[in-house]
Computed example of a mutant assay.
Amino acid sequence: MSASLAATPLRDRLAVWCGWVLVGAAAIIPLLGWLWPREFWLAPALVGLLCLPAVRLRDQDRPVAIVLFAGLIWAAVSTMWSPYHPPKLDNSTILKLALQLPLYGSAILAARRADPVLNRRALQVLAWGCALFGVVFLAEAATQGAVYKALRVVYGPMRDDLAESRIGHATYLLGAIWPLAAYGAARKVRPWLTLAMFAGTGAAAVVFGSDAPVLGLVLAPAVALIVWRWPSGGPKLLAVLAAVLFLSMPLVVWAVRHFFDYQAIQNALPLTDSMRLGYWSHAIDWIRARPFLGWGLDASRMFGPGIKLHPHNNPLQVWMELGVVGAVLAAAFWVVVLSGLSRAKPSLAMAATAACAATYLLFGVNFGVWQEWWLGLGAVVAMLAVMNAPAAEPERSSL
C-alpha cells in the first residue's frame, strides 16, 4: 500500500487510502458478522475513523445531515427528563450517538471518495466473503452449529443454546446486506456467489429460528423488482410506506389489541415473538401517557418488568422515548433517503439498495433502535450503497 501511495499524485492519495481501507473493511465484514455479530459496529467505525479526511458534504447530502443532526439534538435534550441515568460513561447512549454520527458519516463519504479501481476490488472481496459466509451458514445448518461451537471452545466457551442464538443473530447481518453484496458479484457474472448468500441465510435462519431473515429473503427480491420496474415511483412508494410505519406503529398495535384477541395471538406464537407482543402492548400504554415529548432517551430501560431493556421495535422505541418529534424526524429521514433512490431509468444498483433498506426496516421490528451493532449495520448498508452506485463525475480532491 505504501508503494501505491508513493507512486500516486498528491491529489489522489486520499482516494487510494480510502480505497484500501474499504478493501480491508470488505474483508472483515463477513468475519465480524459470523464470529462477533454484536461487535459489527467496529467495521463502519474503523472505516470512518481512518477516513475522516474524506469528509466533504455535497448539497445533496445536506437534507439527510440536517435531519440526523436535528435528531441528535432532540435526543440530547430529551435526556433532561429521562428517568434513566447511565451508571458509567460507556453506558451513555447520547455519547455513543454523538460519536457514531460523524464516524459513520465519514465511512459513507469515504466510499464515495475511494479510488474506483480499489472500490471495485473491495466489492469483489465482499462478494466472495459473503458467499463464504453463506457456505458456512449451510454447514452450520447441517451440523446444528458445530463449526461455530468448536471455534467458541478456542476463543471463549459458550453454552450450546447461546451459541445457536448467536448464529441466528448473525443471519440478520447477512440477510440485510446480501442484495448489495450480490449486486457486486453479479457484475462479474458469478451467480453462484449470490446463491450461496441466499441459500445460506435461509437455511441457517430456518434451523436457528430467525423468522425475520426468512421473510427478508422474500421481501428483498420483491422490492428490488418493484424499484427496477418503476424506477421513479417505486422508491417514492417505499419512502411513504417507511414514513407510515414510523408514524402509525402505535396505532397499529392499539388496533390489533382493540379489535382482536391480543392474548390469544400471544399464546399462539413462539416464546420470543410472544414476549415482543407483550413489550409492544406495554409500550403503547406508556406512549399514550406522554405522546408529544416522550419519556426521554433510554427511558424504556426503566419500565420493567413489562418492558425488558427496550420495546424490541424501532418505531415504538422512538415514539416512547422521543415522542412525536422523534417519530416525525425518523419518518423524515427515511423519506429523504428512500425518495433519493428515484431514477428516470431502471437501475440495478438502486433496486439492490432499496431491497436492503426494506429488509433493514423489516428487521427493525425485532431490535432496539440504539443498539451499536444495529446502527453499525445501517451504516454498512449505506456504505455499500454508495460503493455500488453508478460512477458519477469524478470528485476533485480538497487536498
Results as ranks from 00 to 15, higher is better:
Trp280Lys: 00
Gln144Ala: 14
Ala389Met: 03
Ala289Asp: 15
Arg38Cys: 02
Ala331Cys: 15
Gly304Trp: 13
Val381Ser: 00
Ala205Thr: 12
Pro87His: 15
Asp61Glu: 11
Arg121Tyr: 06
Ala327Glu: 14
Ala203Gln: 06
Tyr172Arg: 01
Thr93Asp: 09
Leu309Met: 05
Ala289His: 15
Arg13Asp: 07
Cys18Leu: 10
Trp192Asn: 04
Thr171Lys: 07
Leu297Asp: 12
Trp178Lys: 00
Ala196Ser: 12
Met320Gln: 06
Cys356Ser: 07
Trp81Asp: 14
Val77Gln: 03
Leu46Glu: 05
Gly19Cys: 06
Trp20Ser: 00
Trp286Met: 04
Val206Thr: 09
Lys308Thr: 03
Phe133Gln: 14
Ser342Arg: 13
Leu329Phe: 06
Ala392Asp: 14
Ala45Pro: 00
Pro83Tyr: 09
Leu245Val: 04
Ala65Ile: 08
Ala70His: 12
Arg113Val: 08
Ala114Gln: 05
Trp74His: 14
Gly376Asn: 06
Gly184Arg: 02
Ser339Arg: 15
Ala150Trp: 04
Gly340Ala: 05
Leu322Gly: 00
Leu99Asp: 13
Leu193Phe: 10
His310Phe: 08
Thr171Asp: 15
Arg276Gln: 07
His312Leu: 14
Met1Ser: 11
Leu5Arg: 08
Val325Trp: 15
Gly156Phe: 08
Arg301Thr: 10
Ala181Met: 01
Val23Tyr: 07
Ala107Trp: 08
Val256Lys: 12
Trp228Asn: 03
Val244Tyr: 13
Ser281Ile: 01
Gly175Ala: 09
Ser4Asp: 10
Ser342Glu: 13
Tyr84Ile: 03
Ala181Cys: 05
Val324Thr: 13
Val47Ala: 06
Leu237Val: 04
Pro221Val: 11
Gly145Glu: 14
Phe208Trp: 06
Asp12Gln: 09
Pro157Thr: 10
Ala75His: 08
Ala351Asn: 02
Ala289Leu: 13
Asp115Tyr: 07
Asn91Phe: 11
Arg58Pro: 10
Asn91Lys: 13
Arg56Pro: 01
